[in-house]
Design a protein around this nucleic acid. Structure first.
Length: 189
DNA sequence: TGCCCGATTAACT
DNA sequence: GTTAATCGGGCAA
């Protein structure tokens, strides 16, 4: 049986946690799947919301590790992050894509698409499919409605530049499961 | 109080 | 390849 991840899993450098999250199973109210794509953010680089200090929106990022940070993007989409590192570090991992394994029917209903690859292949799509909204901002990741299970077996992780940014584009802080068909965009090589 | 912009997506040409 | 949709945060006035 796989075991639940606890807050201590996240209380490390984002660059250790991010690749370790690939292959982990995420459920929200019993709906979810395996993480196949994430991106790391840290307050010392300008692309992060936490860059420039604490504000009302990013307050959760400045809190302790193991909590969900949810923000609204382009007025349309919700994006889900996991807060990492000891309190005050303001580091987080953006969940960009999962491979659906549980509650696929519910995802299809929420997304209104038939193709399984389009259910969760992108941060906004993933949140719509799992029903994640502002109501989840600041919730603990080791308590309902969240459930995180350690991965089973080996996973090959590849890294590359992040997506959709206008700042610090060159940092290779995107991590994904090699060869997965559920990535928002393929990795080079 | 107002104005600009974004860690996106889908529907166009 | 290009672009509209759409809203809350952050900052200037």
């Amino acid at each position: 049986m796989p075991k639940h991840l606890t807050k201590s899993f996240f209380n490390r450098s984002v660059h250790e946690v991010a690749p370790d999250l690939i292959g982990v199973t995420l459920l929200v109210n019993g709906v979810g799947g395996r993480l196949v794509e994430v991106e790391a953010y840290h307050h010392t680089e300008p692309a992060a919301h936490s860059f420039g200090g604490q504000t009302e929106r990013n307050a959760v990022m400045f809190g302790p590790a193991g909590y969900a940070y949810v923000y609204h993007s382009y007025g349309i989409h919700w994006c889900l992050n996991f807060v990492c590192e000891p309190k005050g570090s303001a580091a987080a991992v953006l969940i960009r894509a999962i491979e659906p394994t549980a509650g696929v029917a519910a995802m299809r209903r929420r997304r209104g698409v038939a193709d399984e690859r389009l259910l969760c292949s992108g941060p906004g799509r993933l949140c719509q499919a799992l029903g994640v909204t502002r109501a989840h901002n600041g919730l603990a990741l080791d308590q309902p409605p969240f459930e995180l299970f350690a991965r089973q077996g080996e996973v090959e992780v590849v890294a590359g530049p992040r997506i959709g940014l206008t700042k610090a584009v060159e940092l290779p802080w995107r991590y994904g499961a090699k060869g997965s068909r559920f990535l928002s965009k393929p990795f080079k090589r």
